[in-house]
């Protein structure tokens, strides 16, 4: 049996990580597998990736994928700002952030908002199960009102919808998926990696221990029965000729991504216009009203200037400037002192 290699001649084993310590069947482990698959198939050098995370079950997962990449397990809710600093110091690395609903929608919501606002160039995956698993399953801010976990009272607070929020904040890549929808999720994460700017992917990822009962709107059973994909998503990498890909029979739309790859969206029933903010918000709103989970690429807009572009960052990463560029030149030095004399 021949070993399969990706476009940069690496085996998939170069992208795997340690053994998961999450509960067997956890949705997060599915997402880890998809990240491994996506990074491998996209042929990204592992040492060029930095895995960013906060705190929580989701934020532990970077230990379980991309074992040969760099990792940064930050403090609870602070992944976006740490990533901002790192990305400003070295913009040449691919930053993949993994966060949870507690990390992003509660303690880190301000950071989430501002990272979107500055259009930080990163993939931001939210592993969203609606509960705090590590502290025994309290509801988080994304859980639907009326949803009930395995033990306890129904949730009486309205949810924060992170996709709605991201769209309203002007994010150029907003998607929702489900950890059980492997094909769609793989295509979306690959597309996120090919996007220039903030790519938000909110993934419903059931907590098998605390909220996988039928009364939970984020259980496997419930999401399987109530998922409403907007389209069938297919990712065609920039290194494989698109001409060789079979043309779908029905209606479809190709999204051109920054690195030359394509996200092909095949219409399922009604066509969803990913360039229409109102259509994206409507899709979320109507699904929510009917207790459904809409998934797919909700909104896409290319060419929004990224944080490093707005700041006019130079091409050499600030982290690897030669000694003579570390500090003011002699001429600049003298000018600064002269200014003080006036």
């Amino acid at each position: 049996m021949s070993i399969k290699l990706n476009v940069i001649n690496l085996e998939k084993s170069e992208y795997t990580g340690g053994k998961s310590s999450l509960c067997p069947g956890c949705g997060h482990d599915q997402i880890s597998k998809v990240i491994i698959q996506a990074a491998w198939e996209n042929g990204i050098p592992p040492e060029g990736i930095v895995k960013m995370s906060g705190i929580g079950c989701s934020s532990k997962t970077p230990a379980y994928f991309l074992g040969k990449s760099h990792g940064f397990n930050t403090v609870h809710g602070r992944m976006p700002s740490v990533t901002t600093g790192a990305a400003m110091a070295n913009k040449n690395l691919l930053y993949i952030g993994v966060s949870g609903d507690g990390d992003t929608a509660s303690i880190g919501i301000g950071q989430f908002i501002h990272a979107i606002r500055r259009n930080l160039n990163m993939v931001y995956i939210i592993e969203n199960n609606g509960v705090y698993g590590l502290t025994k399953g309290q509801y988080s801010a994304t859980m639907e009102r009326g949803s009930t976990k395995r033990k306890g009272q129904p949730n009486d607070q309205p949810p924060i919808d992170l996709c709605k929020m991201a769209i309203n904040l002007g994010c150029g890549f907003v998607a929702r998926s489900f950890s059980g929808s492997k094909k769609q999720l793989t295509a979306l994460i690959k597309a996120g990696m090919s996007h220039n700017g903030m790519a938000i992917i909110d993934v419903i990822s059931p907590c098998v221990t605390f909220a996988n009962n039928d009364e939970s709107y984020r259980s496997y059973g419930y999401v399987k029965d109530n998922e409403e994909p907007l389209h069938v998503a297919d990712y065609i990498p920039h290194f494989s000729p698109i001409a060789e890909v079979d043309i779908p029979e029905g209606e479809y739309k190709d999204i051109e991504l920054f690195d030359g790859s394509t996200l092909r969206l095949e219409t399922i029933s009604d066509h969803h216009d990913t360039s229409d903010v109102v259509a994206a918000l409507s899709a979320i709103h109507y699904a929510e009203q009917q207790g459904k989970h809409v998934t797919g690429l909700l909104y896409f807009e290319a060419d929004i200037p990224t944080a490093d572009e707005v700041q006019g960052l130079v091409d050499i990463p600030l982290s690897s400037l030669p000694a003579e560029l570390m500090r003011p030149s002699r001429a600049k030095h003298d000018e600064l002192i002269r200014k003080l004399i006036g």
Binding site: F72, T74, V75, R78, S81, V82, T83, T84, G85, A86, A87, M88, A89, N90, L93, Q111, P317, L318, S319, S320, M326
Partner: peptide, 12 residues
């Protein structure tokens, strides 16, 4: 946190 991130990536 940004200061920490930038320092980790290599900047003073």
């Amino acid at each position: 946190c940004m200061t920490v991130g930038a320092a980790h990536a290599g900047c003073r």
